[in-house]
Design a protein around this nucleic acid. Structure first.
Length: 362
DNA sequence: AAATCGGGGTA
DNA sequence: TACCCAGATTT
């Protein structure tokens, strides 16, 4: 028995928690399916993403790609378009690659072995535990942010939950508490408790089904937990972007590189700028260097802010024109309406939307 | 171990 | 603002 579990009664805890879960759980789309493919999609989408955000994406994605085979055969551009706006786009590319592997190596059947499933792209310790327990009822712990918050409080543990060593501690603890009978309900119950009752601020201890098991509650320190080191503020970056028209009424767009931020998404040409007074000039120099396009930047039209985890873009959008020249790989002239077929970052969706509205007024 | 990778909702 | 979210991968 793990030393942190002294005086902890796993059997009573399981009963209190799972009993509450079976009575109070939310009716979520992926809880209506037993298909491992559906469970898998939901778990990837739910990484660092709220349930309410995921729900519409979950429906649309499965409508577009109802089966392993459908997703395996899809073009990456289609997959990215379905993921547009959900963020962390490597999730979509990794999922696509993993599903292709399942189609080819496992006959289209999601592998239920820990080693096999964990080896798939984009499947880490949490997702492996979640899918294996929920879809296959395997007794595997699934430790996410909810679980660490809940157990920090239950065990009154002041270790920084941002540290790997702390996560390992929780995985060991959960491995001992996890019931063999219904690990699916147990894992989901802990996360549901974290989402509905044991919330980051103002936890609802009075409504908590396991309040009698909680050391933080007993000590009145539930609001102090979990301990988590503050991360530094994102840095700001001034950007210029350009809507460049050619003589045929087409617009210049660009595909971002294979790696890094917003990888492989499409965008209006843009670049980081240094001097406020020379934004338009710097934009022109960028287009000349990268696309051999010599634009005439005519006027500023919009400003767009985009916040990332570690970065804030302040994008100054210009409009201009250029001759319709041949373009390097990754650049395209496209009609206005066609831009809607490409997956764009949210900042560029905003630019596109404003542009369309402006054209409709004319 | 630390940095990177989105976007939106909430206090 | 700052924080958080059913984290994984790269450096």
């Amino acid at each position: 028995m793990h030393p942190l579990l002294e005086n902890f009664s796993p059997e009573q805890f399981q009963q209190d928690l799972v009993g509450w879960y079976r009575d109070q759980k939310r009716d979520l789309p992926w809880r209506r399916s037993a298909d491992p493919y559906h469970i898998w999609i939901s778990e990837i989408m739910l990484q660092q993403t709220k349930v309410d955000t995921v729900i519409p994406y979950y429906y649309r994605f499965l409508e577009a790609f109802p089966t392993i085979e459908a997703l395996a055969q899809a073009e990456e551009d289609q997959v990215m378009k379905q993921w547009e706006g959900l963020g962390y786009y490597s999730r979509a590319r990794n999922l696509h690659q993993a599903v292709k592997e399942v189609a080819e190596e496992y006959g289209g059947i999601v592998p239920s072995g820990k080693k096999e499933f964990r080896s798939l792209k984009g499947v880490g310790p949490y997702t492996a535990g979640a899918v294996l327990s929920i879809a296959f009822d395997k007794p595997e712990p699934a430790v996410d942010g909810n679980v660490m918050r809940v157990f920090s409080r239950l065990l009154c543990l002041y270790e920084d939950i941002g540290k790997q060593s702390t996560k390992s501690t929780f995985e060991a603890v959960l491995g001992e508490i996890l019931p063999l009978t219904s690990p699916s309900d147990f894992n989901q119950a802990v996360m549901e408790l974290g989402a509905l009752i044991c919330t980051p601020t103002s936890p609802g201890c009075l409504l908590c089904p396991v309040q009698e098991h909680c050391k933080a509650r007993a000590a009145g320190v539930q609001e102090e937990l979990p301990v988590k080191e503050k991360k530094k503020a994102p840095r700001k970056q001034e950007m210029a972007a350009a809507i460049i028209w050619n003589g045929r009424g087409e617009i210049l767009i660009h595909q971002r590189p294979d790696k890094g931020l917003l990888a492989r998404l499409w965008e209006f040409p843009n670049t980081a700028v240094e001097k406020e007074a020379e934004r338009a000039e710097e934009m022109g120099a960028y287009l000349e260097a990268e696309a051999s396009v010599t634009p005439e930047i005519e006027r500023p039209v919009q400003r767009v802010e985009q916040t990332f985890s570690h970065l804030i873009w302040n994008v100054h959008v210009y409009e201009g024109k250029a001759e319709r020249t041949g373009l390097p790989e990754g650049w395209k002239w496209v009609p206005l309406d066609d831009i809607a077929n490409y997956a764009l970052p949210v900042a560029h969706q905003k630019i596109y939307k404003t542009l369309v509205e402006r054209m409709e007024l004319k």
